[in-house]
Protein backbone atom coordinates (compact mmCIF):
# COMPACT_ATOMS: atom_id res chain seq x y z
CA UNK A 1 0.00 0.00 0.00
CA UNK A 2 2.84 2.29 0.92
CA UNK A 3 4.51 1.44 -2.37
CA UNK A 4 1.41 2.55 -4.23
CA UNK A 5 1.29 5.82 -2.29
CA UNK A 6 4.97 6.43 -2.92
CA UNK A 7 4.59 5.63 -6.61
CA UNK A 8 1.67 8.02 -6.84
CA UNK A 9 3.67 10.68 -5.04
CA UNK A 10 6.59 10.32 -7.43
CA UNK A 11 4.27 10.38 -10.41
CA UNK A 12 2.68 13.60 -9.21
CA UNK A 13 6.03 15.25 -8.57
CA UNK A 14 7.10 14.36 -12.10
CA UNK A 15 3.94 15.98 -13.45
CA UNK A 16 4.33 19.20 -11.48
CA UNK A 17 6.47 21.13 -14.00
CA UNK A 18 3.79 20.65 -16.65
CA UNK A 19 1.06 21.34 -14.10
CA UNK A 20 2.74 24.65 -13.34
CA UNK A 21 2.65 25.60 -17.00
CA UNK A 22 -0.97 24.48 -17.36
CA UNK A 23 0.05 21.96 -19.99
CA UNK A 24 -1.47 18.81 -18.57
CA UNK A 25 -4.55 17.23 -20.07
CA UNK A 26 -7.75 17.58 -18.07
CA UNK A 27 -7.51 14.13 -16.49
CA UNK A 28 -3.95 14.58 -15.28
CA UNK A 29 -4.74 18.09 -14.16
CA UNK A 30 -7.57 16.83 -11.94
CA UNK A 31 -5.40 14.02 -10.61
CA UNK A 32 -2.63 16.43 -9.60
CA UNK A 33 -5.10 18.87 -8.08
CA UNK A 34 -6.68 16.13 -5.97
CA UNK A 35 -3.32 14.89 -4.80
CA UNK A 36 -2.16 18.37 -3.88
CA UNK A 37 -5.20 18.93 -1.71
CA UNK A 38 -4.14 16.03 0.47
CA UNK A 39 -0.35 16.13 0.26
CA UNK A 40 1.56 18.97 1.93
CA UNK A 41 4.85 17.56 0.68
CA UNK A 42 3.78 17.90 -2.92
CA UNK A 43 2.36 21.34 -2.23
CA UNK A 44 5.85 22.26 -1.13
CA UNK A 45 7.21 20.84 -4.37
CA UNK A 46 4.65 22.89 -6.28
CA UNK A 47 5.73 26.05 -4.45
CA UNK A 48 9.32 25.25 -5.37
CA UNK A 49 8.46 24.73 -9.05
CA UNK A 50 6.38 27.92 -9.22
CA UNK A 51 9.08 29.98 -7.60
CA UNK A 52 11.82 28.61 -9.82
CA UNK A 53 9.87 29.19 -12.99
CA UNK A 54 9.29 32.78 -11.94
CA UNK A 55 12.98 33.23 -11.17
CA UNK A 56 14.24 31.46 -14.28
CA UNK A 57 11.91 32.88 -16.88
CA UNK A 58 13.41 35.46 -19.14
CA UNK A 59 10.64 38.01 -19.03
CA UNK A 60 11.10 41.78 -18.98
CA UNK A 61 9.52 43.38 -15.92
CA UNK A 62 5.93 44.56 -16.03
CA UNK A 63 5.21 48.13 -17.12
CA UNK A 64 5.33 50.71 -14.38
CA UNK A 65 1.69 51.53 -15.04
CA UNK A 66 0.55 48.21 -13.58
CA UNK A 67 1.71 49.17 -10.11
CA UNK A 68 0.06 52.53 -10.42
CA UNK A 69 -3.22 50.95 -11.51
CA UNK A 70 -3.18 48.56 -8.58
CA UNK A 71 -2.62 51.30 -6.04
CA UNK A 72 -5.21 53.51 -7.69
CA UNK A 73 -7.78 50.73 -7.52
CA UNK A 74 -6.95 50.08 -3.90
CA UNK A 75 -7.29 53.77 -3.13
CA UNK A 76 -10.56 53.96 -5.01
CA UNK A 77 -12.04 50.88 -3.39
CA UNK A 78 -14.60 51.56 -0.73
CA UNK A 79 -14.04 50.65 2.85
CA UNK A 80 -16.03 47.46 2.51
CA UNK A 81 -13.47 45.96 0.19
CA UNK A 82 -10.51 47.08 2.22
CA UNK A 83 -9.02 44.41 4.42
CA UNK A 84 -9.13 46.67 7.43
CA UNK A 85 -9.91 44.41 10.33
CA UNK A 86 -8.45 46.39 13.14
CA UNK A 87 -7.94 50.08 13.64
CA UNK A 88 -4.99 51.22 11.62
CA UNK A 89 -2.14 51.34 14.04
CA UNK A 90 1.36 51.00 12.81
CA UNK A 91 3.74 48.87 14.72
CA UNK A 92 7.16 47.41 14.49
CA UNK A 93 9.58 47.98 11.66
CA UNK A 94 6.82 48.85 9.21
CA UNK A 95 5.75 51.78 11.36
CA UNK A 96 9.32 53.00 11.65
CA UNK A 97 9.81 52.68 7.91
CA UNK A 98 6.64 54.65 7.27
CA UNK A 99 7.64 57.32 9.72
CA UNK A 100 11.10 57.56 8.20
CA UNK A 101 9.67 57.82 4.71
CA UNK A 102 11.98 55.11 3.44
CA UNK A 103 9.58 53.15 1.32
CA UNK A 104 12.24 51.99 -1.02
CA UNK A 105 12.88 48.47 -2.22
CA UNK A 106 15.77 46.46 -0.87
CA UNK A 107 19.14 47.66 -2.08
CA UNK A 108 21.20 45.09 -3.94
CA UNK A 109 24.19 43.59 -2.26
CA UNK A 110 27.00 46.07 -2.14
CA UNK A 111 29.74 43.52 -1.76
CA UNK A 112 31.06 43.90 -5.26
CA UNK A 113 34.46 44.35 -6.76
CA UNK A 114 35.78 45.76 -9.97
CA UNK A 115 35.33 48.98 -11.86
CA UNK A 116 34.77 52.05 -9.95
CA UNK A 117 32.15 50.96 -7.48
CA UNK A 118 32.30 47.24 -7.98
CA UNK A 119 31.02 44.81 -10.52
CA UNK A 120 27.98 45.86 -12.46
CA UNK A 121 24.95 44.51 -10.72
CA UNK A 122 22.60 42.28 -12.61
CA UNK A 123 20.34 43.74 -15.23
CA UNK A 124 17.36 42.30 -13.44
CA UNK A 125 18.25 44.09 -10.26
CA UNK A 126 19.04 47.26 -12.16
CA UNK A 127 15.72 47.33 -13.93
CA UNK A 128 13.69 46.37 -10.91
CA UNK A 129 15.47 48.74 -8.59
CA UNK A 130 15.40 51.64 -10.99
CA UNK A 131 11.74 51.17 -11.73
CA UNK A 132 11.02 50.88 -8.04
CA UNK A 133 13.05 53.95 -7.21
CA UNK A 134 11.23 55.86 -9.88
CA UNK A 135 7.87 54.64 -8.70
CA UNK A 136 8.63 55.23 -5.07
CA UNK A 137 9.57 58.75 -5.97
CA UNK A 138 6.31 59.19 -7.80
CA UNK A 139 4.43 57.68 -4.89
CA UNK A 140 5.54 60.33 -2.46
CA UNK A 141 4.33 62.98 -4.76
CA UNK A 142 7.45 63.92 -6.59
CA UNK A 143 7.07 66.04 -9.66
CA UNK A 144 10.22 67.13 -11.34
CA UNK A 145 11.02 70.76 -11.68
CA UNK A 146 9.58 72.53 -14.62
CA UNK A 147 12.42 72.77 -17.02
CA UNK A 148 12.88 76.04 -18.81
CA UNK A 149 12.86 74.75 -22.31
CA UNK A 150 10.30 72.41 -23.75
CA UNK A 151 13.11 70.59 -25.52
CA UNK A 152 14.66 69.73 -22.21
CA UNK A 153 11.41 68.28 -20.92
CA UNK A 154 11.09 66.19 -24.02
CA UNK A 155 14.62 64.92 -23.66
CA UNK A 156 13.91 63.95 -20.09
CA UNK A 157 10.64 62.28 -21.00
CA UNK A 158 12.35 60.34 -23.76
CA UNK A 159 14.99 59.09 -21.36
CA UNK A 160 12.51 58.14 -18.67
CA UNK A 161 10.13 56.35 -21.00
CA UNK A 162 12.45 53.38 -21.34
CA UNK A 163 12.97 51.47 -18.09
CA UNK A 164 15.86 49.62 -19.74
CA UNK A 165 17.68 52.94 -19.86
CA UNK A 166 17.52 53.30 -16.08
CA UNK A 167 20.48 52.57 -13.84
CA UNK A 168 19.99 52.74 -10.09
CA UNK A 169 22.34 54.55 -7.81
CA UNK A 170 22.56 52.32 -4.81
CA UNK A 171 26.12 52.54 -3.64
CA UNK A 172 27.62 54.85 -1.08
CA UNK A 173 30.65 55.15 1.10
CA UNK A 174 28.35 56.43 3.80
CA UNK A 175 25.82 54.53 5.87
CA UNK A 176 22.94 56.53 4.48
CA UNK A 177 19.73 55.65 2.76
CA UNK A 178 20.19 57.93 -0.21
CA UNK A 179 19.09 56.41 -3.47
CA UNK A 180 18.71 57.47 -7.03
CA UNK A 181 18.67 56.55 -10.64
CA UNK A 182 20.17 57.84 -13.85
CA UNK A 183 18.39 57.55 -17.15
CA UNK A 184 20.54 57.41 -20.23
CA UNK A 185 20.70 55.95 -23.72
CA UNK A 186 23.91 54.13 -24.61
CA UNK A 187 24.70 56.23 -27.65
CA UNK A 188 23.46 59.54 -26.25
CA UNK A 189 25.07 62.10 -24.00
CA UNK A 190 22.01 63.20 -22.08
CA UNK A 191 21.79 61.78 -18.59
CA UNK A 192 18.89 62.53 -16.31
CA UNK A 193 19.82 62.21 -12.67
CA UNK A 194 17.34 61.68 -9.86
CA UNK A 195 18.61 61.36 -6.33
CA UNK A 196 16.82 61.36 -3.01
CA UNK A 197 17.93 61.45 0.58
CA UNK A 198 21.24 63.18 0.00
CA UNK A 199 22.76 64.63 3.15
CA UNK A 200 22.68 68.40 3.48
CA UNK A 201 25.99 70.07 2.67
CA UNK A 202 27.64 73.09 4.23
CA UNK A 203 26.88 76.31 2.36
CA UNK A 204 30.23 76.36 0.64
CA UNK A 205 29.86 72.91 -0.90
CA UNK A 206 27.88 71.35 -3.71
CA UNK A 207 27.54 67.91 -5.12
CA UNK A 208 29.70 67.17 -8.12
CA UNK A 209 28.76 64.40 -10.53
CA UNK A 210 31.52 62.19 -11.93
CA UNK A 211 31.41 59.61 -14.67
CA UNK A 212 34.01 56.88 -14.70
CA UNK A 213 35.60 55.05 -17.59
CA UNK A 214 36.98 51.56 -17.77
CA UNK A 215 40.45 53.10 -17.60
CA UNK A 216 39.68 54.21 -14.05
CA UNK A 217 39.59 57.85 -15.01
CA UNK A 218 36.74 60.18 -14.28
CA UNK A 219 35.18 63.21 -15.88
CA UNK A 220 33.01 65.79 -14.24
CA UNK A 221 29.47 66.18 -15.51
CA UNK A 222 28.89 69.28 -13.44
CA UNK A 223 27.73 70.52 -10.08
CA UNK A 224 24.26 70.00 -8.70
CA UNK A 225 22.46 71.28 -5.65
CA UNK A 226 20.24 69.21 -3.44
CA UNK A 227 17.00 70.68 -2.21
CA UNK A 228 16.17 70.96 1.44
CA UNK A 229 14.66 67.49 1.19
CA UNK A 230 17.93 66.05 -0.12
CA UNK A 231 16.56 65.61 -3.64
CA UNK A 232 18.34 66.32 -6.89
CA UNK A 233 16.84 66.40 -10.39
CA UNK A 234 19.27 67.33 -13.12
CA UNK A 235 19.69 66.82 -16.82
CA UNK A 236 23.40 66.39 -17.40
CA UNK A 237 25.59 65.91 -20.42
CA UNK A 238 28.48 63.51 -20.61
CA UNK A 239 31.49 64.52 -22.72
CA UNK A 240 31.44 61.18 -24.53
CA UNK A 241 28.55 58.81 -25.30
CA UNK A 242 27.12 57.22 -22.19
CA UNK A 243 28.30 53.78 -23.33
CA UNK A 244 31.88 54.88 -22.70
CA UNK A 245 31.30 55.04 -18.97
CA UNK A 246 31.06 52.32 -16.37
CA UNK A 247 29.88 54.22 -13.35
CA UNK A 248 28.73 57.47 -11.84
CA UNK A 249 29.25 59.00 -8.44
CA UNK A 250 28.34 62.12 -6.49
CA UNK A 251 30.86 63.67 -4.14
CA UNK A 252 30.76 66.71 -1.91
CA UNK A 253 33.06 69.34 -3.38
CA UNK A 254 33.77 73.05 -2.95
CA UNK A 255 31.07 75.12 -4.61
CA UNK A 256 33.38 75.99 -7.49
CA UNK A 257 33.97 72.32 -8.21
CA UNK A 258 37.06 70.15 -8.20
CA UNK A 259 39.26 68.75 -10.92
CA UNK A 260 38.94 65.32 -9.37
CA UNK A 261 36.96 63.84 -6.49
CA UNK A 262 38.26 64.99 -3.15
CA UNK A 263 35.79 63.28 -0.88
CA UNK A 264 34.07 59.97 -0.53
CA UNK A 265 31.25 58.88 -2.76
CA UNK A 266 27.97 59.98 -1.28
CA UNK A 267 25.93 58.15 -3.90
CA UNK A 268 26.85 56.21 -7.00
CA UNK A 269 26.28 53.22 -9.17
CA UNK A 270 27.81 51.05 -11.84
CA UNK A 271 26.60 50.38 -15.34
CA UNK A 272 26.80 47.03 -17.04
CA UNK A 273 29.00 47.00 -20.15
CA UNK A 274 26.82 48.23 -22.96
CA UNK A 275 27.99 45.56 -25.35
CA UNK A 276 26.70 42.92 -22.97
CA UNK A 277 23.70 44.81 -21.75
CA UNK A 278 22.30 44.93 -25.24
CA UNK A 279 21.13 41.52 -24.19
CA UNK A 280 19.01 41.59 -21.14
CA UNK A 281 20.41 38.31 -20.00
CA UNK A 282 24.01 38.22 -19.14
CA UNK A 283 26.14 35.68 -17.40
CA UNK A 284 28.51 36.90 -14.74
CA UNK A 285 31.88 37.98 -15.92
CA UNK A 286 34.54 35.38 -15.41
CA UNK A 287 37.05 37.81 -13.96
Amino acid sequence: MQDVALRDHLTIVALLPDFVLGKLDETSQRRVTRHLEACPTCRGELDNALNLLGLLADVPPPPLAVRERILQRVAASDSSSAPRAIPSRRAGRWARAIDAGTLLPPAPDRAREGAPFGQPISRRVLIAASAAVFLATALVGWSYEQQGAMGQEQRISALMSDPRAAYPLDDSDLPITASGVVFAEPTGRDVYLIANGLPALPGNQRYQVWFFTTEDTQVSAGLVSAGADGAVRALLQTPAPFADYVGVGLTAEPESGSAAPTSGMVLGGSFPPISASARIDRAPRSS
Partner: peptide
Protein backbone atom coordinates in the same frame (compact mmCIF):
# COMPACT_ATOMS: atom_id res chain seq x y z
CA UNK B 1 27.30 59.53 8.94
CA UNK B 2 24.86 58.09 11.38
CA UNK B 3 21.27 58.19 10.40
CA UNK B 4 18.48 56.64 12.31
CA UNK B 5 16.47 56.11 9.18
CA UNK B 6 19.00 53.55 8.02
CA UNK B 7 17.62 51.25 10.69
CA UNK B 8 14.06 51.54 9.58
CA UNK B 9 14.26 51.27 5.83
CA UNK B 10 11.24 49.53 4.37
CA UNK B 11 13.49 46.84 3.00
CA UNK B 12 14.00 45.66 6.55
CA UNK B 13 10.32 45.04 7.03
Amino acid sequence: VSRAAADVSADLV
